[in-house]
Every structure is written in structure tokens, then in C-alpha cells.
Design a protein around this nucleic acid. Sequence first.
DNA 1: CATGAATGAGAATTCATTCAT
DNA 2: GATGAATGAATTCTCATTCAT
Lengths: 203, 203, 203, 203
Amino acid sequence: MGTQQRRAREKEALRQDILDAARELFVKEGYENVSMRRVAEKIEYSPTTIYLYFEDKASLLYAICEETFAKLAKRMEAITRDSQDPIEALRAGCRAYVDFGLKNPNHYKVTFINHPQHPRDDQRHLKEASMGMKAYGNLRAAVEACIRAKKFRQTNVEAVTQLIWAGEHGITSLLITMPNFPWVKKSELIDLMISTLIDGLRA
Amino acid sequence: MGTQQRRAREKEALRQDILDAARELFVKEGYENVSMRRVAEKIEYSPTTIYLYFEDKASLLYAICEETFAKLAKRMEAITRDSQDPIEALRAGCRAYVDFGLKNPNHYKVTFINHPQHPRDDQRHLKEASMGMKAYGNLRAAVEACIRAKKFRQTNVEAVTQLIWAGEHGITSLLITMPNFPWVKKSELIDLMISTLIDGLRA
Amino acid sequence: MGTQQRRAREKEALRQDILDAARELFVKEGYENVSMRRVAEKIEYSPTTIYLYFEDKASLLYAICEETFAKLAKRMEAITRDSQDPIEALRAGCRAYVDFGLKNPNHYKVTFINHPQHPRDDQRHLKEASMGMKAYGNLRAAVEACIRAKKFRQTNVEAVTQLIWAGEHGITSLLITMPNFPWVKKSELIDLMISTLIDGLRA
Amino acid sequence: MGTQQRRAREKEALRQDILDAARELFVKEGYENVSMRRVAEKIEYSPTTIYLYFEDKASLLYAICEETFAKLAKRMEAITRDSQDPIEALRAGCRAYVDFGLKNPNHYKVTFINHPQHPRDDQRHLKEASMGMKAYGNLRAAVEACIRAKKFRQTNVEAVTQLIWAGEHGITSLLITMPNFPWVKKSELIDLMISTLIDGLRA
DNA sequence: CATGAATGAGAATTCATTCAT
DNA sequence: GATGAATGAATTCTCATTCAT
């Protein structure tokens, strides 16, 4: 029994090592530019071993995205829960979203930008969609709080949520895909987006 | 005599065929995942032939972007020129931008969404930057007009331009890459983005 | 246990097969005109497999040369060591060199005749140079012994060594590359070269 | 008639332009590293045009070699004819041979070193052989003169000729194929070879 | 559990050459 | 006589993946 447990723990540990190595490489160099061999070398195992833990390269990526998505959702939840003022909660949530994207540009790319529509891999696609919906749900809740508190002229929760998401996403994706563009100071641009939208929505 | 003209036309036609095929494939599968061979097969020519029209794969991408930028710039110029009121001009320009993206999703995707960053090809990079800057310049002019007419509280032309671009881009790219998401009515969402931003900027 | 040894032996055997195939092809058709695919076909393995044993095409060539140099050096060392009289040692060494070339024409051709000059691969170049210098060192030692024994009028060790090498090489390479030329009896020609050079050098 | 002549002259002129361009490129960069396109660009004609004058790339090389061989033969003839003393004539002829090789390394390589034995191209091969024999004939005549003048102990004309050829070739080919080897001063090495051989042959 | 060995498929690109005009 | 357009075949090398052990 103790043996089995230890085995299971060791197995799980290696799985995590693989994920950690892959995450670091994917994020640093981009999914397409990282080979399975490179991941294997980083953990000092043979490439074959990775296939004992993950079906293929895409699964590796998928597992990483799932993990990171969970983190994003958790973080946003925490942030919006903490704040009393619904507007401030929304503002903080937005900032967290953008920050998250900029800190995990390759995850963000994979999930929200390039979003490879694998032909016939519908199952995976649905799962990904559900991850996205969960994050969207958090934002929606924050928006709803504002509307319920009569902070906004606009009362269509869905429309406002999508509006804000689009704004966040616009900033995040442009900053990621065009890093060489002569942007004004990034943090100011982000704040400007968030406050302009909130101001525009205000009663 | 007529022969030369016909030849020139045929040559130009093939060039366009190549561009069309490449654009479609780049969008559907991502620049990195499309081989020259695949492009060649799509147009039913040999891979070598492509190299008679484009120096290399990157040039193909570059040509696609250039085309897109030119089209977009032309359309926006026309629209902003017509309007008297600077705010209305800006509004119209924004709508034109989003419309352009939605009507030419492949062009838009390749140029603004999937656009890969080439490492160290500085010369090409500068050229691309300059093309982008031209399109950006149009928007900037419209924003400047508003600011000069004291319509906005914010007076940092660069920041406001980038803000609006990000808003437009957020809407456009999300609508393109996530067509299955349960969006509210698209045109309303677009208008909401534009007017919310403008309202938020107003004095 | 035995398994590991067998494996190691098999691996070494395949490595040798690759080397043999490559050497033969390089000689017959010239390094530049032989593709990795051709080598692979000859040994009936996939091209990829070669890359498990050799980093790239140049490494293949390098390994062939290394082998040749090692063989040649070993043989010459043995021969020159045995002789008491320095002149006789030199003579025997020269004969051994030519014999080696004629008996291993493929090795000789690849290493000393067709050897392509790689542009700017300095690191590899230095290594090759060092291998060559070792073989050259043997000859040099034999020459030095003659000079120290005051057998030669000429006292520039380097110059005399290079002279003799050139003489040996001239005979060896012509006999190998022009087998259809109406040569006089080969062994007499070889002896004539060696003794004429030695006579010419003598005090 | 005059027209025809002019045409013929023009045609011949272009043929020469092609040869000149090809020679320069082959000599500078090596046969394998020069493409037909490069040759065409140099003369500012289309690649196709070259094929109106030469059957294929090999023919181009062949024509160049033929030309150069004729030059070598002529030069050696002149030199050996001028000299009164047969030994000096031989010495001068040898120097001319080596100089020729070092000044036309790519010709020398193609003709005497790499000497690609084209499968089944016997006709071309025979021609090449005949060119070689002509040059060999010159050397033989010079050697014969020395022997007839009783300058040499050795009286086997064929053997001595081959000996000297091998010596010349040894120097020439090593200097060409191993330009990075730390040779002593080249001209001294060449002189040393020639005089050592002659001294060794002397009565 | 882990791996060494092997591979099929494919990448971008270049080349000599031909054909219709 | 000259060429623009086109191509088939080839190049080196990399990758994700599998199989026997």
C-alpha cells in the first residue's frame, strides 16, 4: 500500500515536471518552436517517456492551458470577491485579466488569439470552450453586480460583459502580437481602456 | 502587342491566385503550419513556381499584409474625409474598420491576429511597421481632429488613438475568431463599443 | 548483460556500415554530389537514422578522415620505429605511406584528394588540421632523424618533410586517380620516387 | 554575306562572353558552387540563352578546360623550346606546370584531381585523356632531351617522365587542396622539389 | 517504468533544364 | 536568336511518434 502510494506520488511528480518544463519552454519560445525532444532534455528523460504521460504534443499544451485557465479563474474570483465597491471589483478584475495575458502571452495566444481550430477534434474544442465560458462567467458576475447597483446606464448584462471583454482582449492581444509597435506606456494604456469604458458606461 | 498585355495580365492573375491561396491557408491553419508545397498544391502549380513570384515564404506573408493595409487605408480615408463633424468622422472610421475586418476575415486574421513575429529580420520588419503606421496614421488623424476640436477630455493623441484601435480590434478579432460564441447582436455590440469609448473620452 | 554488449556491437556495426557506404560514395561521386539520402539508401536505412550517428554531413566526412588518419599514423609509427638507420626508416615510412594509399584508395581519396574545403567552419577545420598534423608529425620525426644524423644537405626540417610528403602524395594520388594511364611498373616508380628524392637531398 | 559574317562574329562573341563569365566564376567559386543562373546573370542574358551555345553545364566546363589545356601546352612548348640547356628547359617546364596549376586551381582540380569519371560518357573521357596526353608529351620531350644529353643516370624515359610528373603534381595538388596547411614558402618548396628531383637523377 | 533505435513525413529552398512563343 | 515561365527532382535536415526491449 505505502509502496503504491509512493509510486503514485512519484508518477504524479514526473507528470508535473514534464508540465513545468513544457510550460516554461512554450511560454518562452512558443508552442511551434519547441520540440518534444527539447522538453525531454529539459527534464533529463527520454522523449519516449513523455508519451507515457501525455498522448501527444497537443495534449501537453492542452493540459497546460487547463491549468493556467484555472489559475486565471481563481485569481479573478478572488479579486472580485474581495472588493466592496462593484465598480472597483470590475476594474480590478479587468486589470487582472490583462495582466494575466501579458504574463502568459503564449497561453493567451493559444487560447484566445490563434485558437487553432483542429479539424474534427470537437471534444477538445468543447472542453476549451467550457474553460473560456468559466472565465467569461466571472466577468459577467462582476458586470452584473455593477448593473444591479445601478452604476451603469446600460442594463443589458450580456452586451456590457461582451463589450468589456472585447476591450480587455483588444489591449491584451495587440500588446502581445505587436510588441515592437511604439506603444505609449503600457500600464497607462491599460488603465485608460478600463476607465474609459467604465466612464462611458456610467450613468 | 496584345500578347504582352495578356501575358502581364496572366502573370498578375497567377500572383493573385498565389496570394489568395496562401491567405486562406495561413488563416485556416496558421502561417507556421502551412508549407510552400501546400500553397502550390492548392493552386495546382509546382512549388518552384511560387518562388518566381515571391522571394520566400515570409515575402508571401508580407505581400498579403501589404495588400490588406492598402485596402483598409483606402477605405478609411474615403470615409473620414467625407464627414464634417470630427466625432462623426471618427465614429464612421471605426465602423469602417470593424466592417472591413468582418468582411475580409482572412485578410484581417493574417495581418492583425495570427501575424507571426520573425526573429531578427529587421529590414522586413521595418517595412511592415511602416505599412502599419500608415493605416494607424489615418485613425490618428481622426482622433487628432477630435482633440483639436476640444471634444475629448484626454489630450494625448497617441494614447487615445491606441485606445480606440485596441477597442476596435478587440471586437473585430473576437467576432472573427470565436464565431460560435453566443454574442449579442453584432452590430449593436460594435456600436456599443464605439459609443462607449467616445462617451468615456468626452469632456 | 550480454544484451547490452550485443547492442553496443550492433550500434558500432551500423556506424561502420554508414562510414563504409559514405566513403565509397564520396569517392565515386564526390562529396558534393552525394546526398544523405543516397548514403541511407545504400545501407537500407532511413536518412534520419544517419543523423542518430552523425551530427551532419560534414561530420560524416570528418569521421572518415579521422579513421584514415588514425590507421595511417598507426602503420607508419610501427614501421619507422623498427628501423635503426634513419635513412632506411624514412624510406620504409615512405613506402608504407604509398602502400597504404594504394591499398585503401577510398580512404586516401576522401582524405587527401577530394577533400572539400568547408567555408568558415573553423572549429571543425582546426580539428581536422590537428589530425593531419599528427600524421604529418610522424613523417617529420623521420626526416628530423636524418637531418640530425647529418645525412642531408638540406637542414630545414619543415621544408624537407613537405617535399617528401608532396612526392609521396604525387605518386599515390596519380596512381589512384588515373588507373588507366600507361604507367611503368608501379613498384619501380614508387621506389624511383623515394630514392631519387633521398639521393637529391643527400650531402 | 557581310551580314552573315557579322552575325557569325556576334555569335562567336557571345559564346566567348559566356565562357569568360563561366571561367571566372568556376575558378573563383568552384564548379559545383556556380549555377547556370549565376553565369547568365553575369553576362546579363537569360539562363536559357546559354543553352543555345552549350549543351549543358558540363559542356561549359569541358570547353573551358579544353581552352586552358591548350594554353598550358602552348606555354610549356614555348618554354622548353627557348632554352638551350636541356636541364634548364626541364626545370623551366616544371615550374611552368606548377605555376599553371596554382593560377588555375579549379581547372587543375577538375582535370587532375577530382577528375569526375562520368559513367558512360566515354567519348568525353577519351577527349580529356587525349588533352592530358598532349601535355604529358611535352614533359616527355624535355626529359628525353636531358637523357639524350647524358645528363641523367636513369635512362628510362617513361619512368623519369612519370616520376617528375608525380613530383610536380604532388606539390601542385597539395598546395591547392590544403591551402590552410602551414606550408613553408611556396616558391621555395616548389624549387626544392624540382631541384631535388633533378639532383637525384643526375649522374 | 523507461528508453534506445528507428522512421515516415515533411520543411524551405535551389538547380539544371525545357517549352512555347 | 532570345526569353519568360514553369517544373521535376533534388538538397539537408527536423519533427512527432512508435516499437521492441
